[in-house]
Write a protein that binds this DNA or RNA. Structure first.
Length: 526
RNA sequence: GUCCCCAUCGUCUAGCCAGGUCCAGGACACCGGCCUUUCACGCCGGCGACACGAGUUCAAAUCUCGUUGGGGACGCCA
């Protein structure tokens, strides 16, 4: 996608000058100081078309840190893999973040806009003696590597091109022999040392790091370099990323140092694995690992955030449910767990569509949040299920609120309002076979009985909770059957469900007309 | 193969850095009870873990070493 088009789409022009020419900022000392001390983090997803829950977790921690420290969050799309980088796949990520409520202060920036800058940095490294051109072909190197692997030996690039004379280099270039640019790792017994905010003291010997490639033979930069150059330009002060980045860090620190740039604070977070301790991926686990799945299945965005933040982090207390403000206030890198955590998902479990804890947190919010906050979400769900009636926001507003409140304690996800809760909002609903068998088919005369009950209800002068109950029990006495038979039978017919709120509350929510009609219809069937 | 990281109930975790108050606390899940002529919520209770082995110490989940197990990095992927 052309650069200008992208900028147009994301209306990001106002930031362009600033990040492109950071030297323009802060001519005044005070401003300079303020900018230098500003906490700046970034979330750099590569466009995959969807936001992965692992990525979301990373974004959440970055966002929390920023909010806590009055910093700025930069969204940077690492779109150098051109094939995957369509507008749709970028939007998938952005939609996910928006839905979760993860906000950013700058961007999205696009890594692909800075390729020339990355290349320029590589040439700077050559001129300062921190990098060199390597003319070894991939084929030759592959042979060497395979030989080393076969001999069970450690393979590292043998630096055959490190000591090429300027004449040799000129000659090879004149012959059009393609070359890569390799970073020259310092020699000697030294090591790269840094203090990770989560993992603590990390040390890696120079001799265990090979001279890694930073520019491909086709002239394009590699991630390790691009990422650092972008972070320097974006003046990133803290890098919070997955533990899989821990191995990259020493090499990246070498680049920072060679470029004479300040090294940011690193905080690596544990990974989220599946119950088999495999990395979770959409490919092997399907939709459950995408944020989109939770949106489509009626999760409350904040409940997902609340669940995700607990996967690898905990406050010093036993608190597990947080408002955004509480979480921002209490969040600290100190609470990050070093051990990987498991996303406890069982495929094809009808009872748990995702990690049970995620469900329980969602259910908790569903039944405890202010009803006024829940109503718009239920409305959305009903609209999606084609069950919304504009009267619910008008003359039936009170009824709607009461009904939502009545049925929510049994629900786990918003979808339940249109699923098990459908009978409250529609006259067409499924009959759950289990209660049909248990509460209806078991009784030979149930149609007759419920027909009689329908008539009692119909002629009730006062259709109230008390009167419907009285009428029901009275009829049960007359028929010499247990009231429970009429109660459970009625619930089954009227809601299609085995479970529900107290029947007479249910009847008030369904209303006299619908109640009588449903019972009579059932009674007339045979 | 080399290097790095990690290790508490089934799962998420507290405790570990500053050893005793921990025969290890909370949450989810599961089981039982109360409530309810349904089910859920709620409440009460139960089940359930310091990977293993040495060492240091009067004392170790906590400190040290080793073993085992797991994860990650070693690409002209990001």
């Amino acid at each position: 996608m052309p650069v200008l088009l992208k900028r147009f789409i994301y209306s990001n022009l106002k930031n362009y000058t600033l990040y492109k020419f950071p030297a323009l900022i802060g001519r005044g000392n005070i401003q300079q100081e303020k900018i230098m001390s500003e906490v700046r983090l970034r979330f750099p997803p590569s466009p995959t078309g969807y936001l992965h829950i692992g990525g979301a977790r990373t974004a959440i921690y970055n966002w929390l840190y920023v909010k806590k420290h009055n910093g700025r969050l930069i969204l940077r799309i690492e779109d150098t893999d051109v094939e995957r980088s369509t507008k749709e796949s970028i939007d998938g990520i952005i939609d996910g973040l928006n839905w979760l409520g993860i906000t950013w202060d700058e961007g999205p920036y696009f890594q692909s806009d800075y390729i020339q800058e990355h290349i320029a940095a590589a040439h700077t490294l050559i001129s300062t003696g921190h990098a060199y051109k390597c003319f070894c072909t991939k084929e030759v190197l592959d042979v060497k590597r395979e030989a080393a692997v076969a001999a069970k030996a450690t393979y590292q690039y043998d630096r055959s091109c490190l000591h090429l004379t300027p004449e040799e280099i000129t000659l090879k270039e004149a012959q059009n022999i393609p070359h890569v640019i390799r970073f020259k790792v310092p020699e000697g017994d030294g090591s790269v040392v840094f203090e990770d905010k989560v993992y603590g003291h990390i040390e890696k010997s120079y001799k265990d790091i090979e001279d890694f490639v930073i520019i491909r033979s086709n002239g394009t930069p590699l991630y390790l370099l691009s990422n650092v150059v972008d972070d320097i330009r974006d003046r990133i002060t803290h890098v919070i990323r997955g533990q899989d980045g821990l191995g990259n860090t020493p090499r990246q620190i070498l680049i920072y140092e060679a470029l004479g740039a300040p090294v940011p604070v690193f905080a690596h977070m544990s990974l989220t694995l599946d119950p088999q301790k495999r990395k979770i991926s959409k490919r092997s686990h399907g939709e459950v690992v995408t944020v989109q799945f939770y949106k489509e299945n009626g999760f409350l965005p904040w409940a997902l955030v609340n669940f995700l933040v607990l996967l690898g982090w905990s406050p010093a207390s036993d608190q597990e449910i947080f408002t955004p403000e509480e979480l921002i206030d209490i969040y600290s890198l100190e609470g990050m767990n070093k051990a990987n955590s498991i996303f406890n998902y069982t495929k094809d479990d009808p009872k748990f569509i995702t990690d049970p804890k995620a469900l329980s947190i969602n259910a908790h919010y569903l039944r405890t949040m202010p009803i006024a906050d829940l109503i718009p979400l239920v409305k959305e769900e009903l609209i999606a299920a084609d069950l919304w009636d504009t009267a619910y926001a008008g003359e039936k507003k009170e009824w709607f609120g009461n009904t939502v409140d009545l049925i929510r304690s049994r629900f786990h996800i918003l979808k339940d309002f249109s699923g098990p809760g459908r009978a409250y909002f529609s006259d067409t609903y499924e009959m759950d076979p289990k209660p049909v068998k248990k509460n209806l088919e078991k009784f030979e005369h149930i149609r007759e009985w419920l027909g009689l009950l329908a008539e009692r209800f119909e002629h009730l002068a006062d259709f109230s909770r008390e009167e419907t109950e009285r009428a029901t029990r009275e009829l049960a006495d007359e028929l010499d059957i247990k009231a429970g038979i009429l109660i459970n039978g009625t619930r089954t017919v009227v809601t299609g469900q085995a479970a529900g709120a107290g029947l007479f509350d249910v009847l008030m929510a369904i209303g006299k007309d619908r109640l009588v009609a449903r019972l009579k219809k059932f009674s007339a069937e045979s």
